[in-house]
């Protein structure tokens, strides 16, 4: 499944970039995130609760931030699995300054789900992904 879109953050690109690399803030902004711990250079372990249609369950996963080009772009790879299945996401986030002093974040990537989530939640996954991304940027905006 392709995931692409844009979001606006009310900060200049440098600050927006740093926010998205800060594990404390990421933990607050990622919907359902229960723990995010640094496990290596730009690598974090993640515990989150995922709700999809009639399913909900805990996910253990990891997040890797690679190809850093501060403040222009970076790549994020997320992998997680739990009782209700697994998910994988891989995408590039590009930051462009906007006239109003803010930043436009353009994201473009691929996501894959499997297990029970794929079997019973597929029709919801696209909308759910959009909603989670929207919430993520909304939370970051108020930092």
């Amino acid at each position: 499944m392709k995931i692409a879109g844009t979001a606006a953050l009310p900060f200049p690109p440098e600050r927006a970039y740093d926010l998205m690399q800060d594990p404390v803030l990421l933990a607050k902004a990622i919907p359902g995130c229960e723990a995010l711990e640094k496990t290596g250079d730009n690598e974090y372990s993640l515990k989150m609760k995922m709700v999809l249609a009639s399913l909900s369950g805990a996910f253990d996963g990891k997040v890797r931030l690679t190809e850093p080009e501060r403040p222009h772009s970076f790549r994020m790879v997320v992998e997680g699995s739990g009782k209700i299945g697994f998910m994988k996401g891989d995408g590039v986030l590009r930051l462009t300054p906007k006239g109003d002093g803010g930043t436009e974040v353009a994201y473009d990537g691929e996501a894959q789900i499997g297990g029970t989530m794929a079997a019973v939640g597929n029709r919801m996954i696209d909308m759910t992904a959009r909603m989670l991304i929207k919430r993520f940027f909304e939370k970051l905006s108020v930092e």
Partner: peptide
């Protein structure tokens, strides 16, 4: 290989 019509809702 995911069966995405895996229940009666789909």
């Amino acid at each position: 290989g995911q069966l995405i019509t895996g229940e009666f809702m789909d």
